[in-house]
C-alpha cells in the first residue's frame, strides 16, 4: 500500500480527535478523544515501520529494520494504559467534588 494512504488516514483520525477535544465538554469524552489521537499515531508508526522494513528487505532478507517502530507502539500503549488509570482516577475525584464532569466548571486555573 502507498504510505501516503496511511498518512492521510492517520491524519484524519488525529484531526477527528482534535475536533472532539475542542467541541465536547464531557471530560470522559475528551479523554477518549485523546486515546483516539494516540491510536492514530500508533497506526502511523506501524505503517512507517513496515515501510522501513520494505526498504531494507530489498538488500537483506533477514533484516530487522522497523522493529524499533513497533516496539515504540508497544511502549506508547504501556504509557497510555498508565495514563488512563491515573486520568480516570482524577475524573472520579473531580466528579466526587463538583458532581459533574463538565470541564467548564474547571476554571480554577484562573484564580
Amino acid at each position: 500500500m502507498p504510505i501516503n494512504y496511511y498518512i492521510f488516514l492517520a491524519l484524519a483520525l488525529f484531526s477527528i480527535g482534535i475536533v472532539g477535544v475542542l467541541t465536547r465538554r464531557n471530560a470522559i469524552i475528551i479523554f477518549m478523544c485523546i486515546e483516539l489521537m494516540l491510536n492514530a499515531v500508533n497506526l502511523l508508526l506501524v505503517a512507517f515501520s513496515k515501510m522501513h522494513y520494505l526498504k531494507n528487505a530489498a538488500a537483506d532478507a533477514m533484516t530487522t529494520a522497523g522493529t524499533d517502530g513497533q516496539l515504540f507502539v508497544f511502549f506508547i500503549m504501556v504509557v497510555a494504559a498508565a495514563e488512563v488509570s491515573v486520568g480516570l482516577a482524577i475524573i472520579v475525584m473531580m466528579y466526587r467534588n463538583i458532581h459533574s464532569v463538565d470541564i467548564n466548571f474547571l476554571n480554577r486555573l484562573k484564580h
Partner: peptide, 24 residues
C-alpha cells in the same frame, strides 16, 4: 518525497511475537 514509498502489507515477519520479544 516519501509518497513514492510503499508500506509492506501481508508479509514481513518483524511484527511477529518471536522477533519483537527478542528485541524487547
Amino acid at each position: 518525497d516519501i509518497k513514492q514509498q510503499q508500506a509492506l502489507v501481508n508479509e514481513g515477519n518483524i511484527g511477529l511475537i518471536k522477533n519483537l520479544g527478542k528485541e524487547l
